[in-house]
Amino acid sequence: MTRPAPATLPEPPAPELGAMPDVVDQVALARLYGEPLFAMPTDLYIPPDALEVFLEAFEGPLDLLLYLIRKQNFNILDIPMAGVTRQYLVYVEEIRSRNLELAAEYLLMAAMLIEIKSRMLLPPKKSAEGQEAEDPRAELVRRLLEYEQMKLAAARLNEVPQLGRDVWRAEVYIEQSLQPRFPDVNVADLQEAWRDIVRRAKLVQHHKITREELSVREHMSVVLKRLQGRKFVEFEQLFDAARGVPVLIVTFIAVLELAKEALIDLTQAEAFAPIYVRLAYQPA
């Protein structure tokens, strides 16, 4: 009796070439609008000038000319015009093909170099005094030396620490006191308050003639007693208009003496506001 052959499971179908998987597990090359890309597109176009690399950057014609001279270890006082001009024209031709506006000032310097080279080929002309003519390269050498000095000075200045680039200003948050600070009372405010008190005193004055000895020290004590146990007292409440002008004057002098001796404080909330009097703070 023979045993039946065991049943075999069917093999899964082979994946089709070029088929996209359903789950993206960090194998996509990139994402475009949220969709994964598993292969580089065949119709991708990159413009020729999309990426430009400049190995050397120059700030102007003199900078380029000085770079060529220093790179070849030429003597700046005896510039070989042929070699320098040839190298300069190669660079100018390169930037002219890319940016004509940028090449304009470089073309001007190239014309100057060609003129100097042409003057050097001609026989020198002596001046009227019999002296030899100046070297055609003298003016160019002077400009190059001045430019090199300014460039070195600018480099030294750039090494100095600058605010915002190398150092930053320290900032510390200081919490302000919540207690309001009242403005100081000036002389004009006291004068105006005194005039108002005198005007009201004249309305209730009596024609009784008496002689009374008034003491400033006594009224200073009276003012201090009125301020005892009270936080603020209005300035006008310290004066008793019914007792006449002499008492008002002595009381006013007593208030001034107390303020002078720093026994009381005169404050007001804002300009033209009522004046308040309080006992000065005495530390324990």
Rank of each mutant, 00 (worst) to 15 (best):
V247R: 11
L113E: 00
P80S: 09
I264T: 03
V141C: 06
W168P: 01
R199I: 09
R70E: 15
L178A: 14
L9C: 14
A259T: 13
L62F: 04
V216C: 00
D184M: 04
D49G: 12
L266A: 03
R86I: 12
P6N: 09
R200G: 07
V92R: 01
R31A: 11
Q176W: 07
L227V: 03
A39G: 07
K125R: 14
F74N: 15
L37G: 08
D189P: 04
P10F: 04
P61D: 05
L256M: 15
K231R: 07
N73S: 15
E234N: 03
A153N: 15
P36C: 03
R278P: 11
M220F: 02
E101Y: 11
E134A: 09
R142I: 03
P10I: 10
E175K: 12
F38S: 06
A50G: 05
L279F: 07
M40A: 13
D63M: 08
L214Q: 00
F252V: 06
E236R: 00
L178N: 13
I174A: 09
A50E: 10
V167P: 02
D22Y: 11
I76E: 07
E261D: 11
V185Q: 05
F54C: 12
A259M: 01
L121R: 15
L238A: 00
L152W: 04
L32Y: 09
P13A: 13
E159G: 12
V92Y: 02
L144M: 05
Q205E: 13
V24T: 14
L107I: 02
P246F: 00
P136S: 04
V172R: 05
A170W: 04
V250S: 01
V187A: 07
E115L: 09
R31Q: 15
A271M: 10
P136A: 08
F272I: 14
Y106N: 02
A7M: 13
A188N: 12
D25K: 10
V247K: 02
V185H: 05
D265F: 13
L68P: 10
L68I: 14
K208H: 11
G34M: 02
L279C: 11
E218L: 14
A103N: 03
V204I: 11
L263F: 03
S127I: 07
A7N: 03
A201R: 00
L152V: 15
E59R: 14
Q228E: 02
Q237L: 02
P183G: 09
I79S: 02
L256G: 08
F38V: 06
L227S: 01
A57G: 13
A188H: 10
K225Y: 09
Q191R: 12
E132P: 02
L279R: 11
T2K: 05
T210L: 06
P13Y: 02
A242P: 04
L77W: 12
E52I: 09
G164Q: 06
M120L: 15
L122V: 10
E132H: 03
P123F: 07
E94Q: 15
L102A: 15
I264G: 06
K71V: 11
E134R: 07
S97M: 08
I76G: 02
E171W: 10
L68E: 08
I116E: 06
Q131Y: 08
V247W: 01
A128H: 04
E192F: 03
Q268E: 05
M220S: 01
T42N: 09
